[in-house]
Design a protein around this nucleic acid. Structure first.
Lengths: 180, 180
DNA sequence: CCAGCGAGTATACGTCTGTTTACTAGCCGC
DNA sequence: GCGGCTAGTAAACAGACGTATACTCGCTGG
């Protein structure tokens, strides 16, 4: 047995990190607190102690994620292209992008669904809508968000797409159509 | 106690119908075989007897659904608009559209995921790609499929969008961008 | 040096799940 | 009319889950 430092904050952080990785990879329902505890090399009871519950831990993971809204920075004209580049990554590459990824995978639990809805609204749709302006900004933002989610779902179910040179151009056109 | 007719086929059908409704409404994981049996007013053991397992029952439900590919009928030029109209329904109205709807809600179970993947591929993406033709038909079909799934996810999480007159036009433009 | 606070542990609880196993009872051919 | 196939039933099984509880042990302040 090695000597384990008794560091509450560090253990908490290990749990958080492990949970983030697992939730991102498998989604909320497929991940058990036992898996998280094992991955964090901690006791499963600590999840309850530090985060109240599994859902509490999940909420903290969600809260810790950086907003997707970072791609919103920059000129408005280039926005569709930046969105397209971001989406193209999601089409081809591996996981990453924890919020949306987790979201795709976590359909069931009502408590989690509420967390997701809140997060999606405040961190994605509303910033995007605010950036757009105009009367039906919300509808356009929703549509663009839908494209994001859909791309994730398709990649998850059908596997990564083989990249093509036209992808980004086509996606740019799609986002332009969404946001116009 | 009422007299119950001993009709294997009818009971099977009741189970199938109840399962279809429940899966469509709540998704695979949230529905238990006990719920299905209760809704069908049948014994829960019959699920196992007639369909082998819950997943087997789900597979049969999926197989029984009509293909979304019906909107593919008609002239190619009008295809984006027909897709847009179909998608607009999904944005505003309630459930319906069992395959995709169930798909949104059923993220976890690997066995189910395999069923979904198969179904999505053969009933949606491939027919659409075949309809399109061209070199990257598959990529374009995937993208259009992604828009469908995404719209469903957004509606589920954020609620139905308030309809706007421009919706169908915008969606048409989006699908044109997808399929071009 | 030692009392006590708190991090970490082990284990049990209660519930819910899908599935299986005996069992009961209705129908049909002989 | 009655044996046997079979639809339907009831109950239990085995396991997994999230959560709660009672405990051990190491560090630290006085």
């Amino acid at each position: 047995m090695e000597v384990r430092v008794r560091d509450r904050e560090a253990t908490r952080e290990r749990l958080l990190t492990a949970a983030r990785a697992l939730f991102t990879e498998h989604g909320y329902e497929q991940v058990t607190v036992r898996m998280i505890a094992a991955a964090a090399d901690a006791n499963l009871a600590l999840v309850g102690r530090y985060f109240g519950s599994k859902a509490g831990l999940f909420g903290e993971v969600l809260a810790g994620e950086p907003s997707v809204a970072r791609v919103l920075d920059g000129d408005t004209a280039g926005l569709p292209r930046r969105l397209a580049e971001y989406a193209a990554q999601r089409m081809h590459s591996d996981p990453e992008s924890p919020i949306l990824r987790t979201l795709e995978r976590s359909a069931g639990d009502p408590e989690v669904q509420a967390l997701m809805t809140e997060r999606l609204r405040t961190a994605v749709v509303q910033p995007l809508a605010a950036r757009l302006g105009g009367d039906d900004a919300h509808a356009r933002a929703r549509l663009a968000t839908a494209v994001f989610l859909g791309i994730g779902s398709v990649r998850r179910l059908l596997g990564p797409a083989d990249p093509s040179a036209d992808d980004i151009d086509r996606l740019t056109a799609v986002f332009e159509a969404c946001l116009r």
